[in-house]
Design a protein around this nucleic acid. Structure first.
Length: 561
RNA sequence: GCACUCGUAGCGCAAUUGGAUAGAGUGUCGCCCUCCGACGGCGAAGGUUGUGGGUUCGAUUCCCGCCGGGUGCACCA
């Protein structure tokens, strides 16, 4: 039920469209004022009357019915009271009918959205800074699918550049098969770090030569490089598995090397390419930006060239309606340039390219610096959160079955939730103290709330009770919970529109708070038989909604914890 | 220097996209387990929304100036 539209349709205001009225309807700061409100100030000029007078007139003529119980005018606001029993009945009924589908929709049917996220580099282990793009992208991927879109998850693997020549050079100097096979990606990274520490002119030359060998198809160099690639993919897939993240494409940078020609050709044809200081560039001075360098003065391509090519490839391959780049705001300028170049090439789909920028992670003692050993590996964070969960479970619920599995859901959930709870643009200063705190506004709180609800439902089933969405006229706590549950579908929509999974995370905490107030304030199992069934329905509706929301973030819900 | 971005309670953050008395959490101080799970609930204290203007009936939100933090600015990815 869309209450805003329902009200708008029954509220004729001269010279104002229904859509506009519906959009103007807000929620009063205090429920005692009403459930919805229409501020009448903006109509004052149009109707040549005071806002208060307009509100009163509208209140007098508004037809109360079984949906909207009444309208009152207060200080220029027209406040509506909805029929509470109706809302609870409809909401609970709908949730128990739709179940896992509650909150989903078909708005995206027939549309495709590409999401470029996580995008790791070969031989670079995950540190805490990689968490945001991975869980943000993963959440957006699930949210878009939930809304009926065809989502394409793309891991734009970084596997091209002289740095990979360094990798081979370092391995040839100091590496050996066993150490790397055993130590995996961290062992390769150690070699890389050492190379950068010790590198002189001679070694740099060597690295460039190895990169040239990779490019020219040299057997040995490519064998080593492909081996490193495999080790990297094996490693990241392990982490993705834990975080519940999936991809449909791992098309890497090198994948685009032989596809750049036509794109560069088109730039040239359209007269966008000019030479400057020996390099081929697209001049963006008119747009207040530095040039977009397409080819270096030595003729080599750049990251930007391959990104441009990738955009064309994705458009051609997936015919996306939208293509998201979940990348830190550090690369703001890069994407503004990239999108502008696509626009200058006359592609109307330039407007469908979106940089989903998020804030940066630092540590308490400053920016992360792998060389100085100032780095927090993601595996360590996950491991320590799971260990913390194990410790808490051992203390609070020692008899719990599948303790390991539950600890994993709780610990991993905390890692994901911590990265998604705040607006994505905010910078994060990582600390274990914060990461390991499971109190308050956390996934653990939401999961605990679910466990409480599940426990009540299990007891009721054990008593042979069954319920199917019945709802009696609600008390205050029941109403406030049900009203919030009714918001879930629109929260999911707006999370997608704003690329903000945090909207869902915040919603879940708020909904869980309301459930807990209901749980503390109203007896469920010991209530009168008909009230009991009504409250069991509401309890299950809350559980279903919380579960659906957590699932969108990639967080599981244990039955007991 | 220029561009982008952030600035809200001691701390890390919200605020329905311009609406009514700026909200939860955490930390501090109290209270509540003979009552469905205390990883919980209730209460107290805590604010000149960085600052000065402007637009508006109304500004935390929009515009301009300043202050402070972060990021970026030609051949790295």
């Amino acid at each position: 039920m869309d209450y805003r539209m329902y009200i708008a349709e029954r509220l004729p205001v001269e010279g104002v469209g229904k859509e506009e009225i519906a959009e103007s309807i807000s929620v009063p700061p205090d429920l005692s004022l009403g459930d919805y409100a229409l501020p009448c100030f903006k109509f004052a000029k149009l109707l040549h009357r005071s806002p208060a007078a307009i509100a009163e007139e509208l209140a007098a003529s508004f037809p109360a019915d079984g949906v909207i119980a009444g309208a009152t005018a207060v200080n220029g606001y027209l406040n509506f009271r909805i029929d509470r029993g109706g809302l609870v009945r409809e909401t609970v009924g709908r949730i128990l009918r739709e179940r896992e589908g509650y909150g989903s929709s078909e708005v995206g049917a027939g549309k495709t959205v590409c999401i470029d996220y996580s995008s790791v580099n070969i031989a670079k282990p995950f540190h805490i800074g990689h968490l945001s793009t991975t869980v943000l992208g993963g959440a957006l991927y699930r949210i878009y699918k939930f809304l009926g879109y065809t989502a394409v998850g793309i891991n734009h693997l970084g596997d091209y550049g002289t740095q990979f020549g360094k990798l081979i050079a370092a391995y040839k100097r100091w590496g050996d098969r066993e150490t790397v096979q055993r130590g995996g990606i961290h062992a390769i990274n150690d070699l890389y770090v050492r190379f950068n520490e010790e590198a002189d002119e001679e070694m740099e030359k060597e690295a460039r030569e190895y990169f040239r060998l990779i490019e020219s198809g040299d057997k040995e160099a490519n064998a080593i490089f492909n081996w490193f690639k495999e080790l990297t993919l094996e490693y990241v897939k392990g982490i993705y598995d834990v975080l519940g993240v999936t991809f449909d494409s791992y098309a890497s940078e090198s994948f685009y090397i032989d596809k750049m020609g036509p794109v560069i050709g088109e730039l040239r044809e359209k007269g966008l390419l000019t030479e400057s200081r020996g390099a081929q560039i697209v001049d963006l001075e008119a747009y207040g930006m530095p040039p977009f360098i397409v080819l270096r003065s030595d003729g080599a391509s750049l990251y930007a060239t391959r990104d441009l090519t990738a955009a064309f490839y994705r458009k051609q391959t997936y015919d996306f309606d939208k293509c998201l780049y979940v990348v830190a705001y550090q690369q703001n300028l890069h994407f503004r340039q990239l999108f502008k170049v696509v626009e200058l090439m006359g592609k109307d789909w330039a407007k469908d390219l979106v940089h989903v920028a998020y804030g940066m992670v630092s540590l308490e003692d400053g920016a992360m610096a792998t060389r100085k050993g100032r780095v927090v590996w993601l595996e360590d964070v996950i491991r320590r959160c799971v260990e913390k969960a194990q410790a808490v479970l051992a203390e609070k619920n020692p008899d719990l079955p599948d303790k390991e599995e539950v600890a994993k859901q709780v610990g991993v959930g905390a890692v994901i939730f911590g990265a998604l709870y705040n607006s994505k643009i905010k910078d994060i200063v990582f600390s274990y103290e914060k990461a390991l705190n499971f109190d308050g506004e956390t996934s653990v709180y939401v999961q605990y709330t679910c466990a409480r609800a599940a426990s009540v439902l299990a007891r009721a089933r054990a008593e042979g009770l069954s319920w199917t969405g019945e709802a009696l006229p609600p008390c205050e706590e029941e109403f406030e919970l049900a009203k919030r549950l009714a918001d879930f579908p629109s929260v999911v929509l707006s999370a997608a529109e704003n690329y903000e999974p945090s909207y869902i995370a915040r919603y879940l905490v708020d909904a869980a708070q309301r459930f807990n107030k209901f749980y503390i304030g109203c007896k469920i199992l010991s209530a009168e038989p008909d009230v009991r069934l009504s409250r069991l329905s509401l309890t299950e509706a809350a559980l279903v909604t919380l579960k659906n929301g957590l699932a969108l973030l990639g967080i599981g819900v244990p039955e007991k914890m």
